[in-house]
Simulated scan of single mutants.
Amino acid sequence: MEHQQTCSSVDIAEADEKLEKVKHAIEQFKLMKGALIPVLHEVQDIYGFLPEPVLQVVSEELNLPLSEIYGVASFYHFFSLTPKGEHVIHVCMGTACYIKGAQAVLDRLSTELKVPVQGTTEDNKFTLEATRCLGACGLAPVMTIGEKVHGRLVPNAVPKIINEYK
């Protein structure tokens, strides 16, 4: 029982520390025109996504309706309202990649990771996303894992690539 109290007090302290960082960011950008986007960037840097309770704090502190904040957060692809895995995999589904077999690569990733597209693995290790274009058409089909580009993919290469990140 005592261990549980210690863990939860650590969790609460960490949550309080993160919220203080958010409030500091709000103060830093509050008077700036268009403060919402930099504040949302800070929130996402701190939490890894945009948690609803924190967006409520942002709403109150910036005196903006929550609906406006959600509108901005859902409009820009770089904001996420759900937690992401440690490694985010983007599979290009642009024309060149699609024609050269990106769907089969995406399907193999989904099977290997046991996760649907736009989903995150149970262990929070991977998030699998389909994207419009990664701008590497000459390497089609292509995917990125974090900042690393993997090109000229075939479905059978997927297990080896995934194992590099486990």
Rank of each mutant, 00 (worst) to 15 (best):
T111F: 11
I26P: 02
G71H: 04
I12D: 11
E60I: 11
Q5I: 00
G151A: 01
A102S: 15
V57Y: 03
V10K: 08
I26V: 13
K18P: 12
A35R: 11
A136V: 14
T111P: 00
A102M: 08
L66H: 01
P38S: 02
C133R: 04
G101P: 05
E68R: 13
T6P: 00
P159Q: 09
F79W: 05
S9T: 06
E68P: 00
V54I: 14
V72S: 05
F29R: 08
R108A: 14
E164T: 12
V57N: 06
L106C: 07
S80F: 12
G34N: 13
E2H: 12
Q103C: 06
L106V: 09
Q56H: 14
T95C: 10
D11G: 00
Y76K: 08
F49P: 09
I145P: 03
E2G: 01
I46S: 03
V149Q: 10
E147L: 14
L134T: 00
Q103M: 14
E14T: 14
N124V: 03
T144Q: 14
F126A: 03
L19V: 08
T120E: 01
V22K: 06
G138A: 10
D107V: 06
I26K: 04
V10E: 09
L31Y: 13
Q28R: 15
V88E: 09
T131E: 10
G119M: 02
P38N: 00
T121Q: 11
S67R: 13
A130K: 12
S110G: 07
K33I: 10
L64H: 08
Y76L: 12
E68G: 04
T82K: 14
A25M: 11
H77M: 11
K100S: 15
Y76E: 03
D45A: 13
K100C: 06
N163Y: 06
T121N: 09
G101M: 09
C7S: 07
A96N: 13
G101C: 07
L19Q: 12
E147W: 13
L109N: 02
T144K: 15
E20C: 12
S9I: 01
V105D: 08
L109D: 00
R132M: 12
I162H: 04
R108K: 15
V142T: 14
S67V: 14
I26C: 08
T95L: 12
V117E: 10
L40Q: 11
V10G: 00
G85A: 00
T131A: 03
G85Q: 01
S110W: 08
L153Q: 05
G34H: 10
R132L: 12
F49K: 08
G119S: 02
A15M: 10
Q5K: 02
P141M: 01
Q44C: 04
L109S: 03
K148P: 07
I46M: 05
K125H: 10
Q44A: 03
F78L: 05
E164C: 01
A140D: 07
S59C: 02
V154N: 12
E20S: 14
Q56W: 06
L109F: 13
H77Q: 14
N124E: 14
Y70M: 09
V142G: 04
R132V: 11
V115P: 05
E52T: 15
T95H: 11
S9K: 05
H150G: 09
I162L: 13
G94R: 05
L31D: 15
Y76I: 08
E147H: 15
E27Q: 15
V91A: 07
